[in-house]
Amino acid sequence: MNIVDILEEIEKVDGEVYERFSPRRAAMKQFFNVGKKISLAAVPLALGSMFNKAYGQSTLPANVKAVLQFALTLEHFEAAFYTQALKATGGADFSGSTQATLDKAAIGIISAHETAHVNFLKGVIGADAVAAKASYDWTASGNFPNPFATGNYGVFLAVAQALEDTGVRAYKGQAPALVGQGGVLEAALNIHSVEARHAAKIRYMRNQNGFSIKPWITGGNDSGVANAAAVYAGEENVIQAGITITGINGTPVNVNAATESFDEPLTTDQVLAIVKLFGVS
């Protein structure tokens, strides 16, 4: 992510952005000079505080802020899911196998990314960033067995897949609201593709654990979990911008390939309906 891009884009909406950053350009210059010296780990914090000072807490363009808050709401949920999964007590039921050890390391990588996304978004939104819920309902109001119960490792992977695929679809659905927003859009896209990497990895893990599924979404609900239907609603689409992808231009692209080659977005309402079951609001 390029901070200068973000500032430039905000300037398009708010011509006085540089002036807001106290008190004048010299301060900005100072910030960037400091930026060269401070460790990378401090960047999200520094970035967040700078946005805060510049805008107070409520002057980030309302539609942009709404998108970021929505994204943060989802990231809180995802981060909490993986934090729970990695707990020694009450976590996912990783066996002692070589595969499970590898899986657990992968969940650790994904968990770290989701927590990083939370901190990044909190930094950008500022002081009134939405908070995580105190607890979530991991059974999605009884739609799934408890993914963290003993013997339910397969359920855990299935729910993880549903969450990651939902995340991909959710970010994709928000992108149009960020068109023309430069750096903010780019950051959202940068998170979006990470969620897709996670989704593919979780799917691959399920496959390695004996459940036949591809890293890409084939048809509609390919999760093997009927109650996950809402997560995959519309994924079976084979028409893009009015162009039928199946057999396009005489090629052997079949229906499965046509659905796999394009992931579909979910609207804000569709996503909220899914995560509401987990106690997310």
Binding site: V168, S193, A200, Q240, E260, F262, E264
Partner: peptide, 8 residues
């Protein structure tokens, strides 16, 4: 966006 996530 529909394509990039498949590439990812």
């Amino acid at each position: 966006g529909k394509i990039v996530s498949v590439e990812a």
